[in-house]
């Protein structure tokens, strides 16, 4: 039933498909983040408690939530690569890791610059912040493991196991604000009940969350294409591309 999917694991086909999707996703990401950020910075109403400082939320929450989403995607790809030995899935996981690390870094830094004016400190060792920092180290661990082996099949297996074990950290980040007392505020957006935010603030936030997701997908495709080329350097179609690139 799902056999047709197999053909997309073919390196050349997935390389070309990724290339076709790229410009559309890139435009969508730029449009969403452009609208969401402009809306958030200029048009969203001022917070009655936090004043204008709360405008950091329009990048902090998208970065933080998408850092977890990217991690889960990477772990799923690693799992597919480990269980069904689909190399394309390993390459996808390797492509996501550096992007996830940058997004996690952004979540931590923007949280810090928001924490300083609101809590009076750049950093506290509470559950939410610490577990998000652990997420950054997990990403760095996956990147380092994948880079440590010349044999990339072995490298993907080592990095994949770390990625899968590390998934345990994601629910810990998500529920840390409910399980332990924290300076960090609990979730603003709730799926099952009414969000504690007016529409004029919620809309740009949701647009930016979606925009960050599409941006991560776009950069993943760019890196995936490079990864496909690097791992298939012996294939004639890659060699033809290389010869053409140098001739340019």
């Amino acid at each position: 039933m799902w056999k047709w999917l197999n053909s997309y694991a073919d390196p050349e086909r997935s390389y070309n498909l990724a290339g076709k999707l790229l410009p559309w996703l890139a435009c969508l990401a730029i449009a969403l983040i452009g609208v969401g950020t402009t809306w958030g910075l200029l048009f969203a109403p001022t917070d009655y408690q936090q004043g204008e400082s709360y405008r950091i939320i329009f990048i902090h929450v998208p970065a933080a939530s998408m850092s977890m989403m990217a991690y889960v995607s990477m772990a799923i790809a690693s799992f597919i690569g480990l269980v069904w030995q689909i190399k394309a899935a390993d390459w996808a996981a390797a492509s996501i890791a550096p992007i996830g690390a940058v997004i996690t870094f952004i979540a931590l830094v923007t949280g810090s610059t928001w924490g300083k004016p609101m809590w009076g400190t750049w950093w506290v060792w509470d559950a939410r912040l610490t577990s998000e920092l652990v997420l950054l180290f997990l990403y760095l661990g996956v990147i380092a493991l994948y880079a440590s082996f010349e044999d990339k099949v072995l490298a993907a297996r080592a990095a994949g196991i770390l990625a899968i074990v590390g998934v345990i950290n994601v629910p810990i980040i998500k529920y840390s604000v409910d399980w332990w007392s924290s300076l960090h505020q609990p979730a603003t957006i709730k799926i099952t009940e009414k969000s504690s935010m007016p529409m004029e603030m919620l809309m740009p936030l949701l647009i930016n969350i979606f925009g960050f997701g599409v941006m991560i997908a776009t950069i993943t495709l760019v890196r995936y294409r490079t990864e496909v080329l690097a791992r298939n350097g012996m294939r004639p179609w890659v060699r033809a591309l290389a010869t053409k690139e140098v001739a340019k």
Binding site: T37, S53, R55, F105, I106, T110, W114
Partner: peptide, 24 residues
Amino acid sequence: HMGGYAFYVWLAYGITFSSLAILI
């Protein structure tokens, strides 16, 4: 001026978009 929070808001946005630019 960002209601007096200029430093924090623009630092957050600055680091975000510059690190994204480097990554891209």
